[in-house]
Design a protein around this nucleic acid. Sequence first.
DNA 1: TATTTTTGTGAACTTTTAGTGAAAATTTTT
DNA 2: AAAAATTTTCACTAAAAGTTCACAAAAATA
Lengths: 221, 221
Amino acid sequence: MLKILIVDDEKLIREVIKEYCEVENYQVFEAEDGNYALDIVRNNDINLIVLDIMMPKLDGYSTYKEIKKIRNIPTILLSARSEEYDKLLGFELGIDDYMTKPFSPKELIARIKAVTKRSNKEIESFIYKTLKVDFLAHTIEIDNKEIKVTPKEYEILTYFIKNKNIAISREQLLSAIWGYDFFGDDRTIDTHIKMLRNNLGKYRDLIVTVRALGYKFEIKD
Amino acid sequence: MLKILIVDDEKLIREVIKEYCEVENYQVFEAEDGNYALDIVRNNDINLIVLDIMMPKLDGYSTYKEIKKIRNIPTILLSARSEEYDKLLGFELGIDDYMTKPFSPKELIARIKAVTKRSNKEIESFIYKTLKVDFLAHTIEIDNKEIKVTPKEYEILTYFIKNKNIAISREQLLSAIWGYDFFGDDRTIDTHIKMLRNNLGKYRDLIVTVRALGYKFEIKD
DNA sequence: TATTTTTGTGAACTTTTAGTGAAAATTTTT
DNA sequence: AAAAATTTTCACTAAAAGTTCACAAAAATA
């Protein structure tokens, strides 16, 4: 279960966030200032921190730096006004996300999900039966035998793997792999898919076509 | 192209928002009170609404509720002062976001982008008894068995789900799914409904016909 | 009940879409 | 600069999907 620490001097804010988090089944810890926060971080295995910048005693920035000394924890910063926005942009030392008050609870939950998802997603390889893709070595193996694919095919395959079981539109593939500035024919994808399927041999059916949309890399767990 | 409806009694506010939206290439509709807003929603395929709470005639809250009866549209509420903040937090019936005046146009645009992005992604699945629609995988399951439907049927079903318990006219379905430039016979819908019902098997009755109007996806909660 | 309106449906017909091989264009390697 | 590899375009085909239509069935109305 996700353990979330909320650091804010306003009790109301903490309560509201807590309520929403509990709906999502997160375990919530509260701290009303930076010192309490540090204490909690030291004694609990916190997965994510929601941290207000403007606080009495130990302010958000300083708290953030202190926490980083203890352990790297994904953090979402809250700033009081949108004027702070620019400052935040300049303030770059690994913040995972930030929001300006007032914010919608829905959005916060969405961001929490996004951040936790992101920080858990650095995989080094993908294995399914005898298909192995090694992201570090940049190789693909089937039945212990390396198969060669072109760079584009490799990119498509890894994109599929990272988004397995999600239907991907041609547009999405194009902008993800070709970039937003590609103005060619989107049927080009079909040709690459054809070649990738051929190269995947007996695993060709992992790429299923989603009619009127695009393709999907389907792994039935 | 994104169609945005701005509902505010102050002309100046509307103008400013409009200008910024047009920079982003959004198509902007304006309404100076709730009644106009309802009219526009009924006759256009609006994607997002920016709605002021304080208005003469039909106020924001009421307008919001009325719109929900017509169709589910992501909405950003504007409240006049930050004191309203607490009220808004308690006010929970699916608002996607809200802002307090004065706000920066930049921030509004950022939120519009966030909301539209989210509303296209947030709902990952719909489950009713043993009927499961997975919007990411683009699949439909009944009794743990995947059923195949055509693209149009899938679109209709997801539109129904997003607007469950709301009667949808044939015109509305046409403009939402076929687009404004479809000039064919609206009985075509009936054929698609027939096929969709067949594919839904024991759940066929979720699609109820609303005589002289269209259809409704009815879920008794 | 008779008549009219509206919806359900099977089947014929039309259009759209994806798979594919080949060729042209581009990029990379030799 | 030539050769090789890769990427992109394109035209053709088969399959899938979409549309129309006529008649049956059902509901509303007179």
